[in-house]
C-alpha cells in the first residue's frame, strides 16, 4: 500500500501542456470542482444544522407549546450542566465506550492473529466475520435482548451460577452488560479486520530476525509486532471509541433507556423527538457535539494518533 503513494501524482504531472504553471492552475481548478459536490453535501447536513442548533439552543422552545417560545440565553446549558441526569448519562456513555473498546481491541486482536495465521477455511472465516458487521444494529439488539430474556432466552440456562429466572433488564449493571455484549458482538469483527490489515503490514523479516535473536513469542509481540502496528491500532481506537460514544440503537431497542441505561445520545433523542423540547434538545445536541470533539482531541493527544493516517492522506 505504501508503495503506491507517490506514483499517481507524479504520473498526473507528465508533460502534456508546455507551461507547468498553467497546468497546475488548471489542475487546481479541476480538483476543486471535483470535490465541491462532496464538500457541499457533507456540510449541508452537518455544519448548517449545527449552526441552527446553536441558535435554537438559546431559546426555551417546545413544539407542543409554540406560543411560549422565548429567548433564554445560556439558561438551557446551565440547566443541563447542573443536572445530575446529564452527568449520569455521560458517565454511562463513557463507561460503555471504555469497556466495549477495550474488549473489542483485545478480542479483535486475538481474532486478527488467528485469521493472519490460519491456513484452512480462510474464506469461511472471513465470510462469517463479515456477518456481524453487516447485521443491522437493531437486529443485533433484538437478538441479544431475547437471548438474555428470562422467559424466552437461552443465556440463563447456559451460563452457570445464573438463576433461570434472573431478569437482566431489572437493574442497571446487568442491563448495561447485555447492551455491551450486543455492541461488542457486532463491532469486534470490524475491529479485527482493521487490526488484520495492520498485522499484514508488519514485515515478516523483522519477526524472523527477532526469532533468530532468541526472542520469545511474548517478546516478539511486545517489541516487534505491536510497535509496528501502532498507527493501525490507534486509528482503530479513535474510530471505534467515537462510534461507541454515540451509542443509541442498542439502548433504544434493548432497554428504552430504563434502569439508568440512557446514553447522552439517547437523552438528546428523548428531549428532541419524544418531548419536543427543541430548545433544551438543541443545547444537548451542542453539548454532545462538544463532548465528541473533546474525546477525539483527548484520544489524539493521549495516544498520539497520526491524524494524517486517520484522514487517509496517501
Amino acid at each position: 500500500m505504501s508503495a503506491t503513494t507517490t506514483a499517481p501524482a507524479g504520473v498526473a504531472k507528465t508533460p502534456k501542456s508546455k507551461n507547468a504553471s498553467d497546468r497546475s492552475v488548471a489542475e487546481n481548478r479541476l480538483g476543486m470542482k471535483l470535490v465541491a459536490p462532496a464538500l457541499v453535501v457533507m456540510l449541508f447536513v452537518t455544519a448548517f444544522p449545527m449552526l441552527q442548533a446553536l441558535w435554537l439552543s438559546l431559546s426555551n422552545y417546545a413544539l407542543t407549546a409554540p406560543d411560549d417560545r422565548s429567548f433564554v440565553g445560556a439558561q438551557n446549558y446551565v440547566t443541563a450542566l447542573s443536572d445530575p441526569l446529564f452527568w449520569r448519562t455521560m458517565l454511562v456513555t463513557v463507561g460503555i465506550m471504555v469497556v466495549t473498546v477495550f474488549f473489542e481491541l483485545v478480542i479483535g486482536f486475538v481474532f486478527a492473529l488467528v485469521m493472519h495465521r490460519v491456513i484452512f477455511a480462510r474464506g469461511i472465516i472471513r465470510t462469517s466475520i463479515l456477518i456481524p458487521y453487516g447485521v443491522i444494529t437493531v437486529v443485533s439488539g433484538f437478538a441479544w435482548q431475547f437471548a438474555f430474556s428470562s422467559t424466552n432466552g437461552f443465556v440463563n440456562a447456559w451460563v452457570p451460577f445464573i438463576e433461570d429466572n434472573f431478569n437482566w433488564f431489572g437493574e442497571q449493571f446487568p442491563a448495561l452488560f447485555a447492551i455491551c455484549v450486543s455492541e461488542i458482538w457486532k463491532t469486534t469483527p470490524f475491529m479485527s479486520l482493521l487490526l488484520l490489515a495492520g498485522l499484514a503490514q508488519v514485515s515478516e523479516d523483522m519477526i524472523e530476525a527477532a526469532k533468530v535473536d532468541g526472542a520469545t513469542w511474548w517478546q516478539r509481540m511486545w517489541k516487534v509486532i505491536l510497535p509496528n502496528m501502532r498507527a493501525a491500532i490507534m486509528v482503530a481506537i479513535l474510530f471505534r471509541a467515537l462510534d461507541a460514544f454515540r451509542i443509541f440503537d442498542n439502548i433504544f431497542v434493548m432497554t428504552g433507556g430504563a434502569v439508568n441505561t440512557e446514553s447522552v445520545s439517547f437523552l438528546t433523542y428523548r428531549q428532541v423527538i419524544e418531548q419536543f423540547q427543541i430548545g433544551m434538545g438543541s443545547a444537548l445536541s451542542v453539548l454532545l457535539f462538544l463532548s465528541v470533539l473533546v474525546i477525539a482531541f483527548g484520544i489524539v493527544k493521549l495516544f498520539r494518533v497520526d491524524l494524517a493516517a486517520a484522514r487517509q492522506e496517501g
Binding site: S149, S150, T151, F166, N167, F169, G170, E171, A258, V259
Partner: peptide
Amino acid sequence: QSDLSVSREGTSLG
C-alpha cells in the same frame, strides 16, 4: 413475576 421491571400487557398472559 421474574420480569416485573419489563412486564407489559402481554408478558403476564402466559
